Simulated assay, not measured.
Amino acid sequence: MGLPPDPPPAASPREVPPGELAALGIKVAASTVWKIPREHGIPPAPKRQSTTWADFLRSQAAALLACDLFETRTPTGARMYVFAVIEHSTRRIRILGATAHPTAEWIVPLGRNLVMDLEDAGSNARFLTRDRDAKCTAAFDALPADAGLKVVTTGIRMPRMNSLMERWIQTCRRELLDRTLIRNQSHLLYALREFETFYNEHRPHRTLKQAAPLRALPEPISVPAHIGHMEVPRRDRLGGTLREYRHAA
């Protein structure tokens, strides 16, 4: 007769999955669960149930507005400040005002104008994101709150929480302010109004599949031969800084 087979080796607690240990009545600390995969070179599992901030912004775009106050300078070094608001879903921009001396008293009427404009446009926005600028006081926050908008302040040194507004400011600088010599406040307001109209009514947006916030795309041309007979005049704004292309009337 042969010798009986050797019993299987006993597994140490370190070789048993944590879930199985719990079934055996062995309580495992969270630090132990974290330590074992690390020692074996196993990376953490992805957070499958988590939602990133970018995912949240995309899913809630129709209810979100964002605002910010940013700075520009004239050739003489004078500082000018611009206050603007953008809609997440449509990318429509509203430039509310510009001044050389931004104060809390100056911003409050701009908030009132914003609320009236949103009401006239039938906006469904429910949240307004802003940074922690001290110029946006409780008096400013009360205006959108009365209109059903909840003001959400960004975290400290977390510009990505207001990323869409920051991206628009970058676009405004690159396409307008960095290419224009701004003389004074009235000239700045004029240039910004021209850019606002261009941005909302003409400039193609990749996120909108090349449409503009206030301009839907036309029906595609179904006959290729018609493309060769198109007349497309160009309209220059601000001396050619901004260019628009349209069908001839």
Score class of each variant (00 low, 15 high):
Leu128Met: 14
Ile95Asp: 01
Arg94Phe: 10
Thr207Glu: 03
Arg91Asp: 06
Arg92Tyr: 00
Leu177Gly: 02
Thr171Ile: 04
Arg112Leu: 11
Arg183Lys: 13
Val108Asp: 06
Ala145Ile: 03
Asn124Cys: 05
Cys172Lys: 01
Ala78Tyr: 15
Trp106Ile: 14
Thr90Asp: 00
Arg183Ser: 06
Trp106Asn: 12
Ser163Arg: 09
Arg203Asp: 02
Thr129Asp: 06
Ala100Tyr: 15
Arg183Ala: 12
Val115His: 02
Ala121Asp: 10
Leu96His: 08
Ala142Pro: 04
Glu119Leu: 05
Glu175Ala: 05
Asp178Gly: 09
Arg79Thr: 11
Pro109Ala: 09
Pro144Ile: 02
Met161Gly: 13
Lys135Ala: 10
Ala66Thr: 04
Ile107Thr: 14
Trp168Met: 05
His202Met: 02
Glu71Ala: 13
Asn162Lys: 06
Arg130Pro: 01
Ser186Tyr: 11
Glu166Cys: 03
Asn113Leu: 09
His187Met: 07
Glu87Met: 04
Leu64Asp: 01
Cys172Trp: 02
Glu119Thr: 12
Thr207Lys: 00
Asp141Asn: 07
Ala138Glu: 07
Pro102Val: 06
Ile93Ser: 04
Thr207Gly: 00
Met161Val: 05
Phe195Arg: 03
Met165His: 03
Leu164His: 05
Phe140Leu: 14
Lys135Cys: 11
Thr74Trp: 01
Thr129Pro: 07
Val85Gln: 00
Ala66His: 08
Glu71Gln: 15
Arg91Ser: 07
Asn124Glu: 08
Ser123His: 09
Asp68Ile: 00
Leu188Pro: 02
Trp106Phe: 14
His205Met: 00
Cys67Ile: 10
Ile95Tyr: 03
Thr180Leu: 11
Leu143Trp: 11
Glu194Ser: 10
Ala138Gln: 11
Gln170Pro: 01
Asn124Thr: 11
Leu143Glu: 11
Ala139Trp: 07
Glu166Phe: 02
Asp178Phe: 03
Leu176Arg: 09
Cys136Ala: 14
Glu175Arg: 04
Arg91Trp: 07
Val82Tyr: 02
Phe140Ile: 08
Phe140Thr: 14
Phe140Gln: 05
Ala138Arg: 04
Pro204Arg: 01
Phe140Val: 09
Ala142Ile: 05
Ile156Pro: 12
Thr153Phe: 15
Glu196Ser: 06
Ile93Arg: 06
Asp131Lys: 12
Ile93Thr: 08
Tyr190Gln: 06
Tyr190Ala: 05
Pro144Lys: 07
Trp168Ala: 02
Leu143Met: 04
Ala104Asp: 15
Phe140Glu: 10
Arg179Lys: 13
Ser186Arg: 11
Arg73Val: 14
Leu177Tyr: 02
Met116Val: 15
Arg126Ile: 05
Val108Gly: 12
Val85Arg: 00
Thr129Tyr: 11
His101Trp: 13
Arg132Ile: 13
Gly148Val: 01
Met165Lys: 03
Ile93Glu: 05
Ala84Met: 03
Thr129Phe: 13
Arg91Met: 06
Arg79Met: 15
Arg94Pro: 07
Arg193Leu: 09
Ala121Ser: 14
Glu105Ile: 08
Leu65Lys: 07
Ile107Asp: 10
Leu64Val: 01
Ala134Cys: 08
Ser89Pro: 01
Leu65Tyr: 02
Leu176Ser: 06
Tyr81Ser: 05
Asp141Arg: 04
Asp120Ser: 15
Thr74Asn: 14
Gly155Asn: 10
Pro144Ala: 07
Lys135Gln: 14
Pro159Phe: 12
Thr154Ser: 12
Phe70Ile: 03
Val151Cys: 03
Ala139Asn: 07
Gly77Trp: 14
Ala121Trp: 12
Ile169Gly: 02
